[in-house]
């Protein structure tokens, strides 16, 4: 949680477990077989300078780009997949009410600023999700509590365009 991981090893699997209002942000260069995943908890870093880089949307996206570039990814080839941002409770204490939606807005804005297109997303709703990014086949799968693991995106270099692709 609040963490960030990157890999260029085909056998690796990056995952964000139990995404509620949090958002799993995957950034990949599929031609190079490089991927990174951040578990974003909140929209902006504000005064929390000591936070891990994956925790806030505004800092996570530049950190993801740095990580994949360090593993040989090309900036122009980067693509993103988003999962999470649910609103699990209708409780009006603190700012809990719309954090999922605010996270989604902040992540999309940060990706747009970095000119990284979002290729697929499963965002919003009321259920928690676990997101897995399989580096070798370059696929993203999503699983809800008690549910089946479902493929959200297939970015394998041989597929030009996957059926669930979302253009922005």
């Amino acid at each position: 949680m609040g963490e960030l991981a990157a890999s260029a090893s085909a056998e690796d699997e990056l995952m964000s477990i139990g995404l509620g209002s949090c958002i799993g942000v995957a950034v990949v260069d599929r031609a190079r077989g490089v991927a990174a995943l951040a578990h974003v908890m909140l929209p902006d870093a504000a005064a929390d300078a000591a936070a891990p880089p994956g925790k806030y949307a505004d800092r996570a996206v530049p950190a993801l780009v740095r990580e994949v570039e360090a593993l040989g990814a090309r900036r122009v080839r980067l693509e993103a997949v988003l999962v999470g941002g649910a609103q699990m409770f209708d409780v009006g204490v603190g700012s809990a009410l719309d954090i999922g939606a605010r996270n989604a807005t902040a992540v999309r804005a940060a990706l747009a600023q970095a000119r990284i297109p979002v290729r697929a997303e499963e965002v919003g709703g009321r259920r928690g999700r676990t997101m897995r990014l399989h580096v070798g086949p370059m696929t993203v799968t999503v699983k809800e509590a008690g549910g089946r693991e479902v493929e959200l995106w297939n970015g394998s270099p041989s597929t030009r365009r996957s059926p669930v692709e979302v253009m922005h």
Partner: peptide, 16 residues
């Protein structure tokens, strides 16, 4: 999922 529940609530109560 436990993590989804607790994280969603704590981000609201303690925020940034």
């Amino acid at each position: 999922m436990l993590g989804a529940i607790v994280a969603s609530l704590l981000t609201g109560t303690v925020g940034e």
